[in-house]
Design a binder for these strands. Structure first.
Length: 397
RNA sequence: GCGGCCGUAGCUCAGUGGUUAGAGCACCAGACUGUGGCUCUGGGGGUCGCGGGUUCGAGUCCCGUCGGCCGCCCCA
């Protein structure tokens, strides 16, 4: 029989990596608890219109990366490519009153070409501040993202920029196009991009262009600009390693104001962005709610797992072995009794020689081996061996 | 979606078109029978990713396909 393999870009998360995922989630959970977040789990499958409206018709995510199909009722559905749309939909559907801080953790799906730190099913931890406006909520939003990452001990920097607002975005985009048209020293990709997606030219990896494009801040209203500077200052005061990059842009249409990325310093550029987000003041309205300001971010768990080394402190392992198969039941009883005392205990069930059981106990890292032996058992004892010192002692059953 | 590199044992890999495809590690079992690690000995395990083609003969050459990595695109 030919083996059935996982689909391209889909994978099994197992053992040590699963442990990492869970630890990363725990650290985020503890940190978000400090901000009084509520947790929410929304469906993996939604009507495709939700994402078209939320993420943007013209984005690559919607144009070519969604897993799309018709369900049995003929509805057009999609596996969620990101988390914000579903959370905002739920916010409206559950008729929650703003303000709300909602956090989530789960798989997202995008049909991209997979590579390291990029999978077709990937995991995000995200947080949404719905019904929050003002620069302090921008500050709180970035802090709620930075603190958990810092707790994980990852060496990062925070990069921020502002998109100013709807009208700013448009007029800036126009000005940028005109600026780029006048240049013939761009790479081939950028020459194409300057018409289709001029903002993208700004973070082109080919830095030989030596561009000096117009700054979006010059197109931003004074009050928004002031708040942006205040945000930057407050973040520095809070000890966040933050800097502005006027070329930072985000791929989702719904962002309106502050945008930010958290980048790992010890990682190749392709995987270095481990978390990103920003302000989206029009999305709630776009999905049929009242005008509601909001801010959110999502962390890429798969990428964080590449950087995070857990200080795994598991309980020491007790391993129960027996000298003959007749004592298997008794060994099992002892194992369960120790588990009842909260100890981590394991044993083999197949019949193997004592030597083989010992070898196995050693391999799986047992700290202590409980030896259930015939002689001792008759006298009402079992033997306990310290696998580090080799010392043995008798314990009454 | 585009381009490049790659695919041989569980893992890392070797294998000038020519017998029954190898190594190290890992695994299993023994080494004067109730005790792990070290050493020694032995053993199991491979449709050479999959499918075609060329050839007397293909792991080796060609095509396709699937998968991985890297770059692009894009993004967490």
């Amino acid at each position: 029989m030919p083996k059935i393999r996982a689909l391209r870009g889909f994978r099994d998360i197992y053992g040590e990596e699963w442990e990492k995922f869970w630890n990363i989630y725990e650290v985020f959970r503890e940190n978000l608890e400090l901000f009084n977040f509520k947790w929410i789990e929304t469906p993996v499958l939604e009507r495709v219109d939700l994402f078209i409206r939320a993420v943007g018709e013209e984005t690559d995510i919607v144009q070519k990366q969604m897993f799309l199909f018709k369900d049995r009722g003929g509805r057009d559905v999609a596996l969620r490519p990101e988390g914000t749309a579903g959370v905002v939909r739920a916010f409206l559907e559950l008729a929650l009153n703003p303000p709300q801080k909602l956090a989530y953790f789960g798989p997202m799906f995008r049909a991209e070409r997979p590579q390291r730190g990029r999978y077709r099913q990937f995991y995000q931890i995200g947080a949404e501040f719905i019904g929050y406006s003002g620069y302090l909520s921008d500050v709180e939003g970035v802090l709620s993202a930075y603190l958990p990452v810092r707790s994980l001990g990852i060496n990062v920097e925070v990069i921020v920029n502002t998109l100013g607002g709807e009208s700013t975005k448009r007029s800036y985009s126009q000005a940028l196009k005109e600026y780029l048209r006048g240049r013939d020293d761009l790479c081939e990709d950028c020459k194409r991009r300057r018409e289709t997606n001029p903002l993208r030219v700004l973070d082109c990896k080919v830095d030989s262009h030596r561009l000096n494009p117009p700054d979006i801040l010059d197109f931003t209203p004074e009050d928004v600009k002031e708040e942006f500077y205040k945000t930057l200052e407050r973040l520095k005061e809070e000890g966040v390693p933050v800097r502005r990059d006027k070329n930072l842009v985000r791929g989702l249409d719904y962002y309106t104001g502050l945008v930010f990325e958290i980048r790992a310093k010890d990682m190749e550029a392709a995987q270095s962005t481990v978390l990103a987000g920003g302000r989206y003041d029009h999305l709630v309205e776009e999905l049929g709610g009242k005008p509601t300001p909001a801010f959110g971010w999502a962390a890429g768990v798969d990428r964080i797992a590449l950087l995070y080394m857990p200080d795994r402190t598991r309980k020491p392992l007790y391993f129960v072995v027996r000298t003959s198969e007749d004592l298997k039941e008794e060994a099992f009883r002892i194992a369960m009794r120790l588990r009842g005392e909260g100890k981590r205990v394991d044993m083999l069930h197949e019949s193997r020689s004592l030597k083989s059981q010992m070898r196995y106990a050693n391999k799986v890292g047992a700290r202590w081996v409980i030896i259930v032996g015939e002689d001792e058992y008759r006298r009402g004892y079992y033997r306990i061996k310290d696998m580090e010192t080799g010392e043995e002692g008798l314990v009454a059953i």
